[in-house]
Design a protein around this nucleic acid. Structure first.
Length: 292
DNA sequence: AACAATGTTCAGTC
DNA sequence: GGACTGAACATTGT
């Protein structure tokens, strides 16, 4: 589930339903999800506070907290610790209200198709009003920590400008898909979005980034924006146009050519055999290749 | 049973 | 030191 669109939905859920409710109990007993947590630090840091604002960059959420004991008494800088949440491969956020109403982020696809098991609750904030915020995560690759390192991430994929994109994408010689997945360059693109973006741009996921023509870079940028916006609006990265074609026997929704499968950037990758064929770098008309 | 899965990180190589 | 690659991580579903 969780690429940028799902994470944005989760952030929005927290911002809309979990703020300004006093935390009276914290279950941070999962030692792996709270790594490198030794025990109790999250609970002691958060108990008595409330969440005051939810932010996101790429796939990382961070939540501001109030000073201990209640609403901000000092200036804007007088808050509590930042709570970092990452959904990993299978995480979801669930917020319950005092009356028992349940609100859930995202469009559960794989693990969400079934009723979630209570054993998948990996981290819980219990509020004074009787409600709660829960990180549900079957695979436990999600992560909760204090003060996540947001600066290590590149600009958010939904915010990056064309100039930033060009500078961040075209340096080096790694494959296009590997670069799109590099969170330190651009934050938020995951495996499904990366395939969708390359497909929309008609660029081979295997193409070395330094072989891209300016036109290809422009197409990738436009595809990035349209794929991200569409996926947020529709509720997840699995709503992309080629999601259904990412399977054996799948065909390209544009030209009907067979989809090809391979491993690129260490991840399972699907692309159109015709429109995204790898080929020699294109050069502007009239420009000679370097002598050699 | 073996393998793949919407992610990150670490050890290792160039 | 930077850029890059592949394995490891924990668990579930096919």
């Amino acid at each position: 589930m969780p690429e940028l669109p799902e994470v944005e939905t989760a952030r929005s859920l927290i911002a809309g339903r979990a703020l300004h409710r006093q935390i009276v109990d914290v279950d941070d007993s999962d030692r792996y999800v709270t790594r490198p947590h030794a025990g109790g630090e999250l609970g002691s840091a958060l108990t008595g506070r409330s969440l005051t604002a939810a932010h996101r960059r790429g796939k990382t959420i961070w939540v501001e907290t109030s000073p201990a004991g209640g609403p901000a008494a000092g200036g804007p800088a007088a808050g509590g610790p930042e709570l970092g949440i990452h959904l990993g491969m299978s995480g979801r956020i669930v917020v319950t209200d005092p009356d028992g109403a349940i609100a859930e982020a995202g469009d559960p696809q794989r693990y969400g198709a079934k009723l979630p098991k209570p054993a998948w609750n990996r981290f819980t904030l219990r509020f004074a009003d009787g409600g709660s915020l829960v990180l549900l995560d079957p695979r436990r690759l999600g992560r909760v920590r204090l003060h996540p390192d947001i600066a290590a991430l590149g600009p958010d994929a939904a915010q990056v400008t064309p100039a930033e994109f060009r500078a961040l994408i075209t340096k080096g010689r790694t494959a296009v898909k590997a670069r799109l997945l590099d969170q330190s360059k651009i934050a938020g693109v995951g495996n499904l979005l990366a395939d969708e973006i390359a497909w929309q741009a008609r660029v081979s996921p295997q193409a070395p980034v330094n072989s891209l023509s300016p036109a290809q870079v422009n197409r990738l940028y436009r595809a990035l924006k349209s794929a991200v916006e569409s996926a947020i609006a529709k509720g997840g990265a699995h709503t992309g146009e080629i999601y259904a074609a990412r399977r054996r026997g799948g065909t390209c929704p544009r030209d009907g050519a067979p989809m090809v499968h391979g491993t690129v950037g260490g991840r399972s990758t699907w692309w159109c055999s015709r429109e995204q064929a790898i080929r020699a770098a294109r050069r502007p008309r009239g420009q000679r290749t370097p002598a050699g």
